[in-house]
Simulated assay, not measured.
Amino acid sequence: MELNSIKPAAGAKHAKRRVGRGIGSGLGKTAGRGHKGQKSRSGGYHKVGFEGGQMPLQRRLPKRGFKSHLLKFNAEISLTALNNLGLAEVDVLALKQAGLVSELAKVVKVIKSGEISTAVKLSGVVATAGAKAAIEAAGGSLA
């Protein structure tokens, strides 16, 4: 191989299509844009979702749902996670240090998911009715 014989791979290069350069090129006159209409004009196109003036789909459909921006301050913890924690007294700070709830959490709720066998004293943490019953059955308490 010599420097003067190096060529790009077959099909890697192709000639740029020169439109509007006469009848002999095959792309003269309308330059491949057809006849008249918005799409034949320079700068003539529409925005995404435009339906020709008809009310667009995203505006015809009703708005639904709501996501509270305050949800990031709420956290949940299961009975299983509480059992695996292995602490006698649990508060929000202990849960944050263990990495079970986010640092932003202000309200922590214990949900009845799994089982608890150790007695745990909760302070500053709320619990569902089922979770409260399970904690008290295991000898724990809520403050």
Rank of each mutant, 00 (worst) to 15 (best):
S78Y: 05
K112A: 11
L93P: 05
S123I: 08
G124S: 09
K106I: 09
S102Q: 12
S78L: 10
A119W: 04
I116W: 02
V120C: 00
L93N: 08
N84R: 15
E89D: 15
A119L: 08
N84W: 06
V92R: 14
L100Y: 05
L82A: 00
L93H: 10
A88N: 15
G99W: 04
L82Y: 01
S123H: 11
V107L: 09
L87V: 14
T118N: 13
V101R: 07
K121F: 12
G99S: 08
A105R: 02
A94L: 13
D91N: 15
E103Y: 13
Q97S: 10
I111Y: 03
L93Y: 10
A88R: 15
L85T: 03
E115V: 12
E89I: 10
L87R: 14
E103D: 13
G124D: 06
K96G: 03
S78Q: 08
G114W: 13
S102P: 10
G86M: 14
N83D: 13
A94K: 15
V125G: 00
L122V: 00
L122E: 00
A98E: 06
K109T: 14
A119R: 10
V92F: 06
T80S: 15
L100K: 05
E103H: 14
L104F: 10
L85M: 07
A119H: 07
V90M: 02
E89C: 03
A119Y: 03
I111T: 05
L82D: 01
K121E: 12
L82H: 03
K112I: 04
L87Y: 11
A98S: 03
V120I: 07
G86K: 13
I116D: 00
I116E: 00
L95M: 05
A105E: 03
A81R: 01
L93V: 10
L95W: 02
A94G: 14
E103N: 13
L95H: 01
L85Y: 04
A119P: 07
V90G: 00
Q97N: 12
G86W: 05
K96M: 11
S113C: 09
L93I: 10
K112N: 07
L95E: 02
Q97R: 13
V110E: 04
I111N: 04
N84Q: 14
L122Y: 01
V110L: 06
I111P: 01
G99C: 07
I111R: 03
S117Q: 14
N83Q: 09
D91L: 01
A105V: 03
K106P: 04
V110Q: 02
L104K: 14
A81H: 07
V110Y: 03
A81K: 04
S123N: 14
V92C: 12
V108C: 02
K96C: 08
V125Q: 00
K106E: 11
K109P: 10
N83S: 07
V90N: 00
S113N: 13
T118M: 06
L93M: 11
K106G: 08
E89S: 15
G86S: 13
L79Y: 08
T80K: 12
L104S: 09
L104I: 11
D91C: 07
A119I: 07
V107H: 09
L82P: 02
A88Y: 11
G114S: 06
G124F: 03
V108R: 04
S117D: 12
V120S: 01
V125E: 00
K121I: 12
